[in-house]
Nucleic acid binder design. Structure first.
Lengths: 248, 248
DNA sequence: CCCGGACATTGACCCAAGTCAAGAAACCAT
DNA sequence: ATGGTTTCTTGACTTGGGTCAATGTCCGGG
């Protein structure tokens, strides 16, 4: 079984082949087998936190199902989410340790893990994998920098609209089409998690959601289901160029 | 001449060997020669802006002397600096285009450039280079994420202290020691550029600098020279763990 | 030495978002 | 259904940092 084939989990890599397949798309059969040989699966419950300090975590992983957040935490407890991890996204770094992060499972989570040692050995033998990992990391860097613009310069309203845009784009990408017109999206995050990602408080998030609803830019069905009547109109609120920069 | 040897410029790679040498440290002599064959130098005047959109820029580069900032810009002109480029730092991405950035020379600047095509070919032939580039990119990603915490959660005062800390650490690294005690640093940035990096306005930067000065945490000699009487005391203001996270 | 322009500081005022606190909705497990 | 918990909304109030505007300081060139 290759890394991008189905496992018993409901939504394995087949549903979001871009990243997973990318790790191995250009690999030969024997390289695929090598990847399969060193992988294993781990699941986490919603709400569970994993402290992903470079040294203590001796594996890298990629999300198979569910959504997690990657968080930076200050000693006094202030927390900033620095990345969303959707299915096919990669966590951890090969090589020596980097900064420590908290990974919080926002929903039940299944991850596909590779022990660092054998993964690195495989990387050394298989240039495709290293190259693909570089590409993915560069994309993440672009995304992080775009998010810095949001954190440093956008208003609360623009931040909310941008977050909805990201989720809408992800959703659209899963169905292999471009986001536009009327869309229905499912928020995988609580108001608190949204606030953590946007550099706001949960009260401000709630207020701005209400404001967008009042003005007809979104509709809410329950707390977590958001209907976007007009994707393009919402984009204008986000203050982004029409094409929408984030590739990740 | 290898990439990390002196050129006629005052402070070529020898002064900050970590990154430059790293690109080629594990390369064989012929690979070094190949790198040398495709490199060329370009200089920019202080204040000059280069639009580094993936497609139009057909080279990658690394800073030899001077300091530049990497900026994200919104259509309405709001600007966020997303990275400082010190000597030995790398700009541009091999592979297909990424997001467009503005690179602004904050001082006179000398860059060492490599045309993309031959650089990529070299990368494909030389796994060391690809691996080293991956490491560097992962470090940058860590730095970007640490900065997201600053942008999203720190107060103006903490932001200023953190920026001074970064510059102090860079300075110390150049002399191969750890930052501590009394330090004298030279700001390579105007108040405006500091504000752009910190997600503040220049007035707020100025006010907070004055406040830190009033409280004896820093002294100013002229506008650009900052004396830090007690590095550790300033670190506390920055709200960072003592060891100071940013490796980049 | 003095002038002009760029850069920096300071003050007065304002507003977006944070804080604190009370309810309301949704979501369980019995 | 029912009660208890968690999550979300809304209101009243405060505040950090933005905005606008006036000065001040530095530095290079004539």
């Amino acid at each position: 079984m290759t890394i991008h084939e189905k496992v018993d989990a409901p939504m394995q890599c087949g549903s979001c082949p871009i990243r997973h397949r990318a790790v191995c798309a250009r690999c030969e059969a024997d390289e695929l087998a090598a990847l399969d040989a060193i992988k294993f699966y781990r699941s986490f419950q919603a709400g569970q936190t994993v402290i992903w300090a470079g040294d203590q975590m001796d594996f890298v992983a990629s999300v198979v199902t569910g959504v997690a957040t990657l968080n930076q935490v200050m000693e006094d407890g202030r927390t900033q989410t620095v990345g969303l991890l959707f299915p096919s996204d990669f966590v951890g770094r090969p090589g020596r340790s980097g900064s420590p992060y908290n990974v919080v499972a926002e929903t039940d989570l299944l991850m596909c893990c590779f022990r660092k040692k054998p993964f690195e050995e495989l990387m050394a033998r298989t240039p495709h994998i290293a190259q693909r990992l570089l590409e993915m990391t560069l994309d993440e860097l672009d995304a992080a920098r775009e998010w810095m613009l949001l954190l440093g310069r956008k208003t609360a309203r623009e931040k909310i609209a941008s977050l909805l845009a990201i989720i809408a784009r992800r959703d659209a990408a899963l169905h292999l089409n471009t986001p536009s017109g009327r869309m229905v999206i499912e928020l995988p995050l609580t108001r608190e998690a949204m606030a953590a990602y946007l550099g706001l408080t949960l009260e401000t998030v709630s207020r701005q959601m209400s404001a967008l609803k009042r003005e007809g830019l979104i509709e809410l069905s329950g707390k977590r289901t958001v209907i976007i009547p007009d994707y393009e109109a919402l984009m204008i609120e986000a203050g982004e160029d029409a094409d929408g920069g984030l590739p990740a």
